[in-house]
Design a protein around this nucleic acid. Structure first.
Lengths: 265, 265
DNA sequence: CGACACCTTGAAGAGGTTCAAGAAATGTGG
DNA sequence: CCACATTTCTTGAACCTCTTCAAGGTGTCG
């Protein structure tokens, strides 16, 4: 059913990202890195820096850290010290309340920055869980702040990253507050595939890294509803679904579903 | 039914905030201000500054601006130049999509900072509408960034404000994604009254500045559902409601509704 | 006072949830 | 490497919450 193997879908154009980076082993969990060689640079670094500024910024990234699938990068209540740039792998962030409520607040992939929730209270207020084996660049926040005071481009970059997260969450609020199940799932798939495409993956094919339950939590739906909605999309010929492998057959139809069933103009 | 008059509820301890501030009229919409005298200082300024740092920061606030009820402080698509600190009044922020969806993303009151959505694209991505006559301090963002590079405490403060907004939105996602109508409205009321209390108003009484429809948009409910849920709370003796005047009779009951109907421990 | 915006309430209906059962994939240990 | 346990996914049926549509009431402001 799928022309592209799971491996190919996972790897894509940038599949060999890690192999280009000089690394100096420090301990089993951490290794030195160099941003200048990283091909995710354009995703997590400011552009148009002078050479000496770039040198400085490279010093921010103390170490890299590997996170096994299912393990937490950080947990609710944990002391906040660093932001993390995802090098490889896929994360979810979620909040859990004492009374047992649980909400996935986002899914994050390579090149995205994670940990911003921890700044305000100097403790993390959510969990970040790796949904596949992952590696992150550890960026001590105090170093970021220090350098931001010296390099205006970095300062602006940090501000934009935080603002982008705020705007993203506005979009999720719109989704949760005003969309029906089909619209939510369509928006979710389009968003995922668009972000993957920006990283060199297929526009039409994706491998979900999360369960139906996690999708449901993110979209404010029960897992059965997610499953049923997938089935409906399949019936309508909009997607092919085989467990976590999804192929989008009719992107326009998904867009129409999201846009309140209006023709795109 | 209400011991406190609407005026008293509106004004509260800090009702005469504006009268303490030296102002130099500049044009009909803008006047010079001094943070050092503002009794909202502790809400929107970093604490523990040296005198010279405080002087610098005061220069950030170029002007104040009045916004009439119903008018916009800024609109979607508008060029972003400044953040705004609310001095008096009450705002909603909302996004509207081409296909007619509309989502209130937040309600903001005195001492809160508004406009963070505009940083990432240097254009605002939502509308900020005054729900009552309001006055804001205009803080040009370039000046904020400049001074943040000089005053670490201000830099940290800006980061915390943005992080706080991210965490707040996580809470809204939890609400929209996992709560039923009663739970949403209870959480909404508790949140409002808690923020008002922090500003010197009553713990049990509040005057809603927004319509049922706006509450509904924020909570992902239809206005009829909001109205019915209010009525149910009244029947159960949890609140008194007379149009936009709300008196909370049983805070514990509201908390129990939010906490998944578990006893608070 | 009349026009308008806002709020309340009822009845019917739709969409999503819950409960339940079984199938398919995945992981584990011998 | 296979057998078994576990997790994940799908589907059906009944139920419930919220929405939709409709009508009437209340408050406000020029």
């Amino acid at each position: 059913m799928f022309e592209v193997t799971p491996e190919a879908a996972e790897t894509g154009k940038r599949g060999d990202a890690a192999s280009h980076v000089k690394t100096i082993p420090m301990n089993p969990l951490s290794i030195k890195v160099a941003c200048s060689n990283c091909n995710l640079r354009e995703l997590c670094m400011p552009m148009g820096l002078k050479a000496d500024e770039l040198d400085k910024i490279e010093e921010i990234i103390a170490v890299r850290r590997k996170v096994k699938r299912g393990a937490r990068l950080y947990s609710n209540g944990e002391k906040f010290t660093s932001l993390f740039a995802i090098r490889t792998g896929f994360f979810k962030t979620c909040i859990t309340t004492e009374d047992g409520r649980n909400q996935v607040t986002g899914f994050q992939m390579a090149g995205e920055i994670i940990g911003l929730d921890g700044i305000v209270k100097e403790r993390h207020t959510c969990d970040a869980v790796a949904l596949e084996d992952a590696e992150v660049c550890v960026m001590p926040f105090e170093r970021i702040e220090e350098l931001s005071r010296e390099v205006a481009a970095l300062q602006r970059h940090v501000h934009k990253i935080m603002s982008r997260e705020i705007v993203r969450e506005h979009g999720v609020m719109l989704l949760l507050g005003s969309m029906r199940a089909e619209e939510r799932l369509a928006a979710f798939l389009l968003n995922l595939v668009q972000r993957l495409h920006a990283r060199g993956f297929s526009q039409s094919e994706l491998l979900l890294r999360m369960t139906r339950e996690e999708i449901g939590s993110y979209l404010g739906l029960k897992l059965e509803t997610v499953s049923r909605t997938f089935s409906r999309f399949v019936e309508e010929g909009i997607v092919e679904v085989k467990q976590r492998h999804v192929r989008i057959l009719d992107t326009a139809a998904l867009k129409m579903i999201v846009n309140n069933n209006q023709q795109p103009c």
